[in-house]
Amino acid sequence: MAEWTADGNKLVIKLVYYGPALSGKTTNLMRLHDMMETGACGELMTFETKGDRTLFFDLLPLVVKAESGFSVKLKLYTVPGQVAHDATRKAVLSRSDGVVFVADSRNSQAVSNFESFDNLEKNAGRVGLDFENLPLVVQFNKRDLEDIVSEEAVRNRWAPTGLPIVFSSALKGVGVVETFRRLLLDTYLHLDGIYDLDRRYGLQTGHFTDLLPTMREP
């Protein structure tokens, strides 16, 4: 649930990168941070990261400003993927406005992906999110590795869900922006439906997409 600041001139939106352990959620945020223009992007805060594993979460704050002076602060979070941190995952997921599910493309990780997605659905229910209408983008990461599920197989499997699928290699920066763009658009549409952002604050899709790095994806 997006949060308004006291003066009502700023909306704080929470976006969460969910997924199994070591699927590349933090890498996604690090890539985004590297590519962002410093003006709109705060520091990437990495909490208690030990041996590549996120124990708390990572946070990347971004700011979107409309000409009206109205601004939107986007906070990008990761959740700890390890099974043991379910309470933390729930807390980070609570009140989120959009979710990227970062799946690991390797064949060996099919079960972890399934379990994590199942966990996302369950936790969404537990923290009171309307999972059916939650902006959600599925990213199949680690496409640069060997022994991965084919794109066709992924598409076939996920087609019934109707969720947008992005193939990526976060480590190489491929697909990271595309994933974020999909999420931004879906989230904007969702929030515009609720808060009438365009009419009341002059906030349009363009303001969101301007945020995206124009940068050359490699």
Binding site: F47, E48, F56, F57, A87, T88, K90, A91, V92
Partner: peptide
Amino acid sequence: TAGLHGQVVAD
């Protein structure tokens, strides 16, 4: 982090 920790602990 303290808040999160607190929340998780409270949970």
